[in-house]
């Protein structure tokens, strides 16, 4: 008696990932319509290539991988139609002058974060992280999430968005400093360190 192996991915199961994909796309694109378009394109591409899914990763990881390519395609198209302009405000480092004394050392040393790894198992932490990312200025957020969430190299970001390497590093630095400050204020200093979910 022969048994037929079930396909590694069922097309009807792909739809259940739509909500998570949409959340991911909105965070990158900051526009629900564009996000829905990218998710639809990604799901269509996934259906067309479902027989090539090898099962080496989870279905979600595979779908997010396809979605990342669709989002990058969107960024490429958008930057061809309208060049990305980095405002003086976004390329300045003056915002962080308040953290440092005149000699360039910290006025108040950064507070240690208690049990940061524990935060990674708490859904509330990721809600705070999301809000902190949403608070970043547009171009800063786009460059930062391309680098940190989508894994695009800084060279590729510069090429895709038509910005200089120095601008790119300044934007990523600004994003990290802002995100650090936001997480400290909204999570670590707010006493959320005990696991609650």
């Amino acid at each position: 008696m022969t048994s037929t192996a079930s396909p590694p991915v069922e097309i009807r199961d792909l739809e259940k990932h739509r909500r998570a994909m949409l959340k991911f796309a909105i965070l990158q694109l900051r526009n629900e319509t564009y996000a829905e378009d990218c998710v639809q394109e990604a799901l269509t591409a996934a259906i067309q290539s479902a027989d090539r899914f090898a099962g080496d990763s989870s279905v979600r990881t595979w779908l997010i991988g396809i979605l990342k390519h669709k989002i990058l395609d969107h960024f490429r198209k958008a930057s061809r139609e309208q060049a990305v302009t980095v405002s003086d405000e976004e390329s300045s480092l003056d915002d962080f002058d308040g953290l440092f004394k005149e000699d360039g050392h910290y006025i108040e040393p950064p507070a240690p974060w208690a049990n940061p790894e524990q935060a990674l198992s708490q859904s509330e932490f990721f809600e705070v992280l999301e809000r902190c990312l949403q608070a970043l200025p547009n171009v800063t957020a786009r460059v930062f999430t391309m680098r940190e969430v989508m894994g695009v190299t800084t060279d590729e970001i510069c090429t895709e968005l038509g910005i200089t390497a120095n601008n790119c590093w300044v934007l990523i630095y600004r994003a990290r400093m802002s995100l650090r400050e936001c997480l400290e204020k909204r999570w670590f200093a707010a006493g959320h360190t005990a696991a609650s979910s």
């Binding site: 991911f24 989870s58 940061p116 990721f126 992280l129 999301e130 940190e148 969430v149 997480l183």
Partner: peptide, 14 residues
């Protein structure tokens, strides 16, 4: 840590 958190964020509800 923020880099690890962002990496974990994309795998939520996996």
């Amino acid at each position: 840590f923020m880099r690890r958190a962002l990496s974990a964020y994309t795998k939520l509800d996996d």
